[in-house]
Amino acid sequence: MKRSVEEKNWLEQQNVIVCRCEDVTLDEVRRAIAQGATTLDELKRLLRVGMGPCQGRTCRELLARELAEHLGKPVGEIMPPTFRPPAKPVKLGLVSRLAEDVPRAGGDSSLEGGESR
């Protein structure tokens, strides 16, 4: 998606928050890209974008669009970031207790397996 000049100017004037979990602004993202970041994982490492409780659900696509625009590539060619478990934030106390009660399904130890529900 291409933005109009007016829209770009307006965005640049605002202190636009891109990652709501970690309070990261569009300006910070653009500075990291200007310094040489070319992937979503690099933006994560430098800015913590996508590392908060929502794990990037809100900012991932916004960030991909910024990178795509800067690199002159389609958004589809931007490498997705690494997805990490758990799928939703879970209390330490709950994990420690649930493990006692829930019988393990088979021998599968991966978090994508049935026991992680």
Binding site: M51, G52, Q55, P86, P89, L92, G93, V95, S96, A99
Partner: peptide
């Protein structure tokens, strides 16, 4: 995740209600 939470809550029980966001 299970072992880590069990062991850490024995040493630091007050962390019980903290949420794990990433491993």
């Amino acid at each position: 995740l299970r072992e880590m939470s069990r062991i850490i809550l024995r040493l630091l029980p007050a962390l019980e209600s903290l949420k794990v966001v990433r491993q």
